[in-house]
């Protein structure tokens, strides 16, 4: 049996990227200080990447790293669409360079920036969904029972009784009636969805945004799927 005390797993995180528009460190410093002062707790140890697409080769990479660390950010590395030479220079200096995930159809038209943006945002979403495997529960989930699909999607082959709770970090699919509570995207996955063949739930929630039964009048008793549109839950008929 393969024994391993460590394991590397590919995981997606949403990282903030600081886009630099000027070479002047003094200006950068002033603006950064102002920003941090707005919410010092929020920015404390805030992980940040620095996008250097708009700065040139001669930029003082070390200075920006020191500045960020002085202001108590957690500097991760550089990013941006830059030349191979610039990337090698950064590596030689001992800093990480990461490419933002651009999986999917690459558009050859570089002047149509909006298109590229949207395309890679969509595929990033799909990638996030595919990260989760499925936990399958066969049989009814009875009152008082709780099923938690940790870092997985949940598929229930049966109904979820009133007083029962099904929770998943990913999506929830119920081949039966949902009469209890279903909480999807439990760890912050905003795109999680809930599917069931008969909506009679006590509560549904996606990433903390919830509906009680009173909000489900539109599709009560029907096969539905529920998703988050912005910060609002929406239900749609399945068939």
């Amino acid at each position: 049996m393969a024994d391993s005390s460590i394991e590397f797993k590919g995981t997606s995180f949403t990282l903030s990227v600081l886009h630099l528009k000027t070479l002047k460190l003094a200006d950068i410093r002033t603006n950064l200080v102002k920003k941090v002062a707005q919410a010092p707790d929020f920015f404390y140890l805030f992980p940040v990447m620095v996008d250097i697409e708009e700065v040139d080769f001669s930029f003082d990479y070390q200075a920006i790293k020191i500045l960020l660390e002085e202001l108590k950010f957690t500097f991760i590395g550089f990013t941006g669409s830059v030349s191979k030479e610039q990337r090698s220079l950064i590596r030689e200096l001992g800093y990480s360079f990461l490419n933002a995930a651009k999986v999917g159809v690459p558009s050859k038209k570089k002047n149509n920036d909006d298109v590229i943006e949207t395309k890679y945002k969509e595929t990033e979403t799909i990638r996030e969904n595919r990260l989760y495997g499925d936990k399958i529960h066969r049989g009814q989930v009875r009152s008082g029972q709780q099923i938690y699909a940790k870092e997985q999607n949940l598929v229930v082959i049966g109904s979820v009784s009133a007083g029962a709770e099904v929770i998943a970090d990913g999506n929830i699919h119920i081949y039966g009636s949902l009469r209890g509570r279903a909480l999807a995207g439990a760890k912050g996955h905003h795109q999680a969805q809930i599917y069931c063949q008969n909506l009679e739930a006590e509560l549904v929630s996606i990433n903390g945004n919830y509906w009680l039964s009173e909000s489900m009048n539109k599709h009560w008793g029907s096969p539905v799927y529920i998703q988050l549109t912005g910060a609002e839950l929406t239900s749609s008929k399945l068939i």
């Binding site: 009814q140 009875r142 009152s143 008082g144 029972q145 009784s161 009133a162 007083g163 029962a164």
Partner: peptide
């Protein structure tokens, strides 16, 4: 509701 609960316990 209570019967459902006891069914959960039985299983």
């Amino acid at each position: 509701r209570d019967s459902d609960r006891i069914l959960g316990m039985l299983s």
